[in-house]
Structures are given as structure tokens and as C-alpha cells.
């Protein structure tokens, strides 16, 4: 009985998140006409597909006890690379897409290597990566590059019909595939278990003979890849490349992961939780749009308040489990 209770404690943030989502959705449905529909729910996925993909990568990073501040800039850089290769170099998407995906992957791998081999703090390395990626996208061009290409328009405008007259976009399908792969990686592979072990205690993981170094480099590579993929999805969504795209996105992503119940100290959390976290950020925006009179900055304040509540909740859980350990 006691054992079951302790498991509940670790899952408390996730349960709170899901409850919060249901609460906010019912609040919206009661307050605004037209809010309670499957399409409004699906729009949350359509508008936030890229955020889901970044959040998945970030979840792994945070689970390992690190942080990746470069993701927002990588999205901008990817959109810029894709736009300039398509419009200025006139390359076919068959070449553009792999190159764009490589951008973030390589950057992530370099960051991971610096963090692991030279024992630098993830925070400062990814901060430099953030500067670098944003600076490089400005070096490509200071202006917005609009994309006019049949492939990109196809990706942007295709609607996949679902029963009940609703639809989703191709980006949503990509995001869902990524989430499924990530859940598999996180819970059913050695790689996933090593991540949780590193997050619990890096030293213990090392002593257990787990491949800590390789896993750490892979985690940041994966996060970079996710950021690049998100950058492509973002490009489909905006149909342009711009150095200021996704400004501050890293904070939204971290917020989504934290609200989704992943402990910032690492070692506990779920990929699926982060998806719910993203949906909560999305629903805040939807409510503000439906309300009509509220300005956009209320989103920031609301996210700040939620972050605060969830972080305090996390602290209470950690303190409780520490006390319990001390008792035993």
C-alpha cells in the first residue's frame, strides 16, 4: 500500500497536468461557443506540431539532467537554410530536406561532445550554440526569405481528413510518429534506461558501467535533430525563413517539459507528459484568442505562473521523497 502511494507521488505532476488540461478545456467549452469541438482540439496539434517535436528532444536532455538552450535558434537556422537553398540555390527538396535536418544534428553533436569531453556545463555550451545558430541565420540573410515551391506549399496546405469532418495536417502526422518513436526509445531500449540512470546520478551510472559519454553525446544530437525537424515543420507552417523565427522558443519548450511533469533535476518524467505540456501552452493561447480582449502578453504571464506552480510542486515531491529515504 505504502509502495503504491510512493509511485503516485512521482506521477503527481503528470496527473496534475492532465487534470489541468481537462479543466482548461472544459472551462473554454463552457465559456465560449464553438470551443467544444474536435477541430479545436485537433488545431492544438496542428498549431503546435513543431513545439511537440522540440519538446520530445528536450525531454531527453532534461531527463539526463542537462538543458538545451539552442533549440529556438536551431529552428530559425533550419528555416533559413531550407529557404535559401530552395529559393536562392534552386535545389530540389530531395536535397534540401536532408541538409536542413543535418544542420541541427551536427550542431547538437558538437554541443554534446563539448559537454562530455571537456566537462563544460550544458547551460553555457548550448547558450553559445544559441548565439551561433541565430548569428549564422543572420549571416545567410537579414531579411525574410519567402518560400514559393510546390513541395512546401503541398506540405503546408494538405489536409488529411478524419471522420466527423475534421482534419489534421502532415506536420501532425510527423509529430505523432516522432512521439511514438521517442516513447519506444525512452521506455523500451537500453539507451532510454541509460538516460534515466544518468539523470538519477551520473556517477552511479558511470560506476554501473553504462556508456555515459556516448549516451550524453547522443542525447544532444537527438535534441538537435528534433529541433531541426521542428524547424522544417515550422517552415512548412510559416512558408518562410527568417532569423527571428522562434525567438524565445527554448523557454516555451522547457516550460512545456516542466509542466509535463519531467523533473528538472533529471531522472523522472515521461515523453508523453511533455506532449500534454505543449497542449496546455496551446490551450492557453486558444483561450486568449477566444476571449478576444486579452492581449498576447497574458500568455507569458500565464506560462510564468504555471511554471512557478509546477516547480514548487516538484520541489515538494523531491523533499518528500528525500525525507522518506532518510526515514528508511
Amino acid at each position: 500500500m505504502i509502495n503504491r502511494l510512493s509511485i503516485d507521488y512521482k506521477q503527481l505532476p503528470l496527473i496534475a497536468t492532465i487534470a489541468l488540461f481537462v479543466l482548461m478545456f472544459s472551462f473554454g467549452s463552457l465559456r465560449y461557443t464553438g470551443f467544444f469541438s474536435t477541430q479545436v482540439f485537433l488545431n492544438l496539434f496542428i498549431d503546435n506540431a513543431f513545439l511537440i517535436v522540440v519538446a520530445v528532444g528536450m525531454t531527453f536532455v532534461i531527463l539526463s539532467g542537462g538543458i538545451d538552450l539552442s533549440v529556438g535558434s536551431v529552428i530559425a537556422l533550419t528555416s533559413m537554410v531550407a529557404a535559401s537553398l530552395t529559393m536562392e540555390a534552386q535545389l530540389s527538396p530531395v536535397i534540401v530536406v536532408p541538409i536542413s535536418l543535418l544542420v541541427g544534428t551536427v550542431l547538437g553533436m558538437v554541443q554534446g561532445s563539448l559537454i562530455h569531453f571537456y566537462n563544460l556545463q550544458p547551460f553555457i555550451v548550448t547558450l553559445a550554440g544559441m548565439f551561433l545558430a541565430r548569428g549564422l541565420s543572420y549571416v545567410i540573410s537579414v531579411e525574410t526569405i519567402a518560400i514559393e515551391h510546390p513541395f512546401f506549399s503541398y506540405m503546408a496546405s494538405t489536409q488529411i481528413p478524419l471522420p466527423g469532418g475534421t482534419f489534421i495536417s502532415i506536420s501532425v502526422v510527423i509529430a505523432i510518429i516522432i512521439v511514438i518513436i521517442a516513447i519506444f526509445l525512452g521506455h523500451f531500449t537500453k539507451f532510454g534506461r541509460t538516460i534515466y540512470a544518468i539523470g538519477g546520478s551520473e556517477q552511479s551510472a558511470m560506476l554501473m558501467g553504462l556508456p555515459v559519454g556516448r549516451t550524453k553525446v547522443l542525447i544532444y544530437t537527438l535534441s538537435g535533430f528534433c529541433a531541426s525537424l521542428a524547424g522544417l515543420i515550422f517552415t512548412f507552417y510559416m512558408l518562410s525563413g527568417y532569423g527571428l523565427h522562434a525567438n524565445g522558443m527554448e523557454l516555451d519548450t522547457i516550460a512545456a517539459v516542466v509542466i509535463g511533469g519531467t523533473l528538472l533535476t533529471g531522472g523522472a518524467g515521461y515523453v508523453a507528459g511533455s506532449v500534454v505540456g505543449v497542449l496546455i501552452l496551446g490551450i492557453i493561447q486558444t483561450i486568449i484568442v477566444f476571449e478576444g480582449t486579452l492581449s498576447s502578453w497574458w500568455t507569458k504571464i500565464a506560462i510564468g505562473v504555471l511554471l512557478f506552480l509546477f516547480i514548487v510542486l516538484q520541489r515538494i515531491i523531491v523533499i518528500r521523497s528525500e525525507k522518506k529515504q532518510a526515514k528508511e
Binding site: G129, F131, G135, Y138
Partner: peptide, 8 residues
């Protein structure tokens, strides 16, 4: 804008 690259 190159400032950012130099800083990095």
C-alpha cells in the same frame, strides 16, 4: 547581426 556569431 554577425555580433552573435563572434560572441558565441
Amino acid at each position: 547581426e554577425t555580433n552573435l556569431v563572434v560572441k558565441a
